[in-house]
Design a protein around this nucleic acid. Structure first.
Lengths: 284, 284
DNA sequence: ACGGAACTTCCGTCGAACGGAAGACCGTTT
DNA sequence: AAACGGTCTTCCGTTCGACGGAAGTTCCGT
């Protein structure tokens, strides 16, 4: 009744859709299982509302109740996620190539696409006895600190590049490059050489090499990267294999620049929804 | 206000959370990209409501607007889905074993877990020149019609088995076994032999062999399966390799029955949230 | 036995979600 | 050209369901 004192930070008016999404949003790789009251606290929703929404999510299959009473993400969400067009569909095409690359290099392999200012790994193969790395399938990391991210950024629009460079760039290690000017230079190098070679950007003692993957209209749609321990014997020797893999995947996607001049593709060029850029239909 | 005529099928009162989820629910492997009005029609929501909710979902990253104006599932959902504990975490452990199996058998390999009356494939590796199969990562198929599903069902509780057998069992091919009594016999065979061997159940000309994977408390948490064309040379020769793979993954998960009697595990048994069954805390 | 914490249920109030209607913007047809 | 069917977008008044407080229940630890 009385005026709410300014004790709380913000009034935070939320729509009911946002409430639902905020519940899903509190789950992360550090918080795989949460109790009801933990969800309530972390979302800022009242316990009653949390209780009701969580149950609706559980009924639908978005959440699952663990045996110890805590909630986790349900398989229905995993199922849904595989429908993302730039995601596991692309993965399907690329997987054989990535497997070859892993056997040839004994390195950790990543396939990444852009989402916002980040990359998301849509595949992550770790070498049998390779160094453990942070990158998991589904992992999200800032573009400026990853090899694959630098590649994707280098081939983005000028405006987008500046938007990213203007944002706050997190420093992960002492060597992480966060200076916009230095990054512009690096991006130019990537465009010139066609590969990104970065060291100790996201984690110490890791060297990453990445190359662009092109789609049907030669647009860069993904990036493939290998990660090896810093100081590995001749990391530059990995570049040819990586470039061949990127080219192979691009060709399988129907990229003109990777297709033999004969013109006729060997197999039917797979149509992947969302990778085939076309002109928007309606204006505004 | 005048009484609504009985023109429409049901009144279908939905909560706002259900409305949000119903929008996500209309996406499927057959409908990867939908226009606003398609979503509206398929959910039964008014265009206005659909418009508002779809935009909230897009802002959050659950949906993505395609270049042709249609909507697809966004990478944020893929990211979320990887947090499902029985999902890609288990996959991480199993992947090296599955890769070995693929190279040894040149067959299509699946890793499946139970969800409702279905199995969901949390990994699907196709042999380099193997027969194309329906199973995609994230794919969902009824238990009674898949090899991995039969295994998971065979090791489920008696009540759950009966619940599934009582439900409507879809017939996929002329040979699909849908008779409850015949299925009970098959389930008993699976429990006795430890493997399921099925033929032409989901698709014609496919033979599937599957075996259970056990977790920390020896509970069956997943199943691994291989699929080969019907009439392949000696499918039974695949059983030992499959059993070894299942046992290897079980051991890596810390299953007592797959761990050497010495007792001390070689490496730290990975704790995967949701696989470690424990007694529920609160009642009701 | 007591106190605290987490979870669940009930219920009256209120405001946000809802849908109708109208406008903007296509592409196609006559 | 004009009319039409389709899709998408914006606006706004009304209503009903989402919301949160409060009380009840169960389970811990002390």
């Amino acid at each position: 009744m009385t005026v709410l004192a300014a004790t709380s930070s913000e009034p935070t008016r939320l729509t009911s859709a946002q409430r639902v999404l905020s519940i899903l949003g509190v789950f992360s790789s550090e918080h795989l299982a949460l109790s009801l009251s933990e969800i309530s606290r972390r979302t800022g929703l009242t316990l009653t509302t949390t209780h009701r929404l969580v149950n609706e999510l559980r009924t639908w299959g978005a959440l699952r109740r663990d045996n110890d009473g805590r909630y986790t993400i349900g398989l229905r969400i995993l199922e849904l996620g595989t429908l993302a067009p730039q995601g596991l569909q692309l993965r399907e095409v690329a997987l054989p190539f990535l497997d070859d690359l892993r056997h040839a290099t004994h390195a950790n392999i990543h396939l990444a696409v852009a989402d916002g200012h980040d990359v998301i790994y849509i595949e992550s193969l770790r070498a049998r006895h390779g160094v453990p790395v942070l990158s998991r399938l589904g992992g999200r990391w800032p573009m400026h600190a990853t090899g694959t991210g630098l590649v994707l950024l280098a081939y983005s629009s000028q405006e987008f590049q500046e938007e990213v460079l203007r944002s706050k760039l997190r420093q992960f290690t002492a060597q992480t490059v966060t200076c916009p000017e230095a990054l512009r230079v690096r991006l130019a190098e990537v465009r010139k050489s066609g590969v990104a070679i970065t060291e100790n950007q996201l984690t110490q003692d890791a060297l990453a090499i990445a190359a662009p993957i092109r789609g049907p209209r030669d647009a860069v749609v993904a990036a493939v990267g290998v990660t090896v321990p810093t100081g590995s014997a001749s990391p530059h020797s990995l570049v040819p294999a990586l470039a061949a893999t990127a080219r192979g995947i691009s060709r399988a996607l129907g990229a003109p620049s990777a297709t033999p001049v004969s013109g006729v593709p060997v197999s039917s060029p797979p149509r992947i929804r969302g990778l085939n850029r076309s002109v928007p239909r309606q204006g505004r």
